[in-house]
């Protein structure tokens, strides 16, 4: 079972307290009426399916109830970073290196 760091509670807690809430950083268009059918289709349905680091939303549903962003590696299933809604996706993975290292044998 994964341990997930809630950026609001500032605590690493069991996966059971959280739920996945889709890909992150997909902003709802400011004015949907002005969207072409293709643009709106992309907003609704088109998602990346990366093999590697994936930015996604999670919710601490059985804790503080708040949504946050996470960068998770879809291969190792390890969280590289979690950060508050509204914050930019970390480009430097400095915070994550410790969690995601392949430990030397």
């Amino acid at each position: 079972m994964l341990l997930i760091h809630c950026p609001y509670c500032k605590e690493k807690l069991p996966e059971l307290e959280f739920e996945y809430a889709g890909q992150a950083h997909i902003a709802r268009p400011e004015n949907p009426a002005e969207q072409t059918d293709a643009e709106w289709r992309d907003y609704l349905f088109i998602r990346s399916n990366v093999r590697g680091d994936h930015a996604e939303q999670w919710r601490h549903s059985h804790g503080c109830g708040r949504y946050f962003n996470a960068l998770r590696n879809t291969v190792s299933d390890k969280f590289i970073a979690t950060y508050e809604i509204g914050q930019a996706c970390p480009t430097s993975h400095a915070e994550g290196e410790e969690n995601n290292e392949q430990l030397e044998s």
Binding site: A21, A27, Q57, R59, S61, G65, Y67, I85
Partner: peptide, 13 residues
């Protein structure tokens, strides 16, 4: 409620 919270927290804070 989850849907409302999702919009409120992530789109319309």
């Amino acid at each position: 409620l989850t849907m409302m919270e999702h919009f409120l927290q992530t789109e319309w804070p």
